[in-house]
Every structure is written in C-alpha cells, then in structure tokens.
Amino acid sequence: MTATATALAGRHLLGIADLTADEIGLILDTAEAMKEVAERPIKKVPALRGKTVINLFYEPSTRTRTSFEVAEKRLSADTLNIAVATSSVVKGETLIDTVLNLEAMHPDMIVLRHASSGAGHLLSKVCRARIINAGDGMHEHPTQALLDAFTIRERKGRLAGLKVAIIGDLLHSRVLRSNVLLLSKMGADVWACAPPTLIPRGLERLGAHVTTSVDEAVRGADVVMMLRIQLERMEGNFFPSLREYFNVFGMTPERVALAREDAIIMHPGPMNRGVEIASEVADGPRSVILDQVTNGVAVRMAVLYLLAGGGDGD
C-alpha cells in the first residue's frame, strides 16, 4: 500500500478522476474492514462521533441516500437529510445560497446529489465542508464505481486484467464515466457498448474500447455490467422502442453464455427488467446485484471515514 491512510483526509470526493490507483486501493482496503462491522452484533462504531454529515439530495434517490445514511449511522455521525421537495430550492434559491445556509450548521461533510454536472465542483469552491459527490448530472458517481470495483474484487480477487463489459445508456450515465475511469486506472480491460445514439463522443479517450456489438463486448468477459435505460430516452429517438432495445442490446441468458463461465452480472439499479436485462439474468446465479447494495454501505463508510480522517498516532 503506497497511499498512506491520510491520503484522502480533508479532501473532497468529486470524482474518480481525482483519485490515483493507490488511493482507490486504500478506499477498497478500508471498505473490507468496514464490511466486517456489518457482521457484528452491534453494527456501529464511534469513528465519526461528533461529526455532522448533511445528505443534500436534489434528485430523488432512495437507494444511494439510504446507503449513505446507513454508512453514516454505522460510523456514529450525526446525519441530516435534505431532499429537494422539502427545501427552499423550490423557491428559487441558488445552490450556493442553500449550501452557505447549511454551512451555518457547521457540517463536516455534505453528500451531494444534483442533476447538474459539476455541481460538486461549484460547491467545493465555496464550502468549508468536504463534498462527497453522490452523483452529479451525467458527470460522475464515484461511490457507485468504488462499490462496483469492491464487488468485482471480492468475487474475482483482482481488477487488473479483467474484461469488463458495460452495456446500456452510456451517453447519459455518470456510472459509466466513473466506472471507466476507475477500472482503466486499475488495469482492467473495459468494453463499453450501446447503440451509436447513446455513445458519448471521445469515450475511447477515457479508457474504454467502444463497440455497438453486445456479442463483442460480452465475449470472454469476466464482468458484465448493465446500465439502466431510461424510458424517456425513446422520445429523443435514441432507439425506436423498448422491445427493439431489448432484442438488440438487452442482456439475455443466450448473450450471457458468451461471457466466461464464471462471469458475474452487475447492475447499479434501479433495473428495468425486460428492457436492459432479462429477469433470468438479473435473478440468476451469476448476478451479484444484491451484493452491490450490501457493499455500497461498506464503501461509503470507507469514503466517509477516510475523508474525515487525519488523526495522529497514540
């Protein structure tokens, strides 16, 4: 381990782009210890006692918010949830004003989910609290990529050298961007696949092979990661119908058979069964989709802990 335990102390986590491979390794290693906490009779440690964490969610997201909240509670932090509907943003207050008001409560960290790419960058310039990006627009969702990597490493023992196929709406996906950055930094062979209408320009430069052939992406893959197809994309003519999308790009047992025999199937959720993934695949023996949820808590505990850290030895 070349990253010291304080490598992340006092920093923001805005994206995987800001992390080195060593720092990613540190988070994943720390998450392993955090996962053990969940197996204890008392699933709570006092590490963040006295710290205040605000979960500021401008987009509805039960899954991510709950995961952060459980992680914060297991670390004994004081948490405050602010969802868009109950806050003053509806009255037209700017993001910066909202957050400066929250800062008056002296939060140590703000977990931010926002529909605008770069919202965390904007706040990081004006906030004293550390910002953890819980998804910003189409930009990044770093803790999702970290928990995906944790899950892969748990199953495969490594990340380097694995073929990872990521299939779905690449264009609008922050999960895709964070995952490509993370997996390529860690030496995985990343394949991204979508209809050409849903492939962001220049994706190869982020570190992925790009293909429109699901078969090519899945063939020999160690990991098959499906991304959610949002139903409203049909209106933008990105593809003609959900039925056709499933027929051409959906993950079926036949397509899974092209992957390695021990391949795992992942999905960041929420899933559209019968659109991007067949139920037989989602619920099949190779699916680690529920492990992802469990690991999300451990990874978020690690991130919270490492960002808050900076103590010296006894």
């Binding site: 006092g10 540190l26 720390t30 955090m34 802990y305 850290g309 900076g310 030895g313």
Partner: peptide
C-alpha cells in the same frame, strides 16, 4: 481486534499518520 474506528483522535490533529483500518477477527 482493530481499534482504529474507536480511536478518539480522528482529525484532532491535522498531521501525522492515521492507521489503516483493518478487519477485526
């Protein structure tokens, strides 16, 4: 027993090493 998560000095000092958290077993 790994006691890192029970220490009372997290972020009390700006510098100095913070031990890696490892599994309790």
């Amino acid at each position: 027993l790994d006691i890192t998560l029970y220490r009372d000095d997290l972020s009390r000092h700006a510098v100095g090493p913070q031990p890696l958290v490892r599994r309790t077993d």
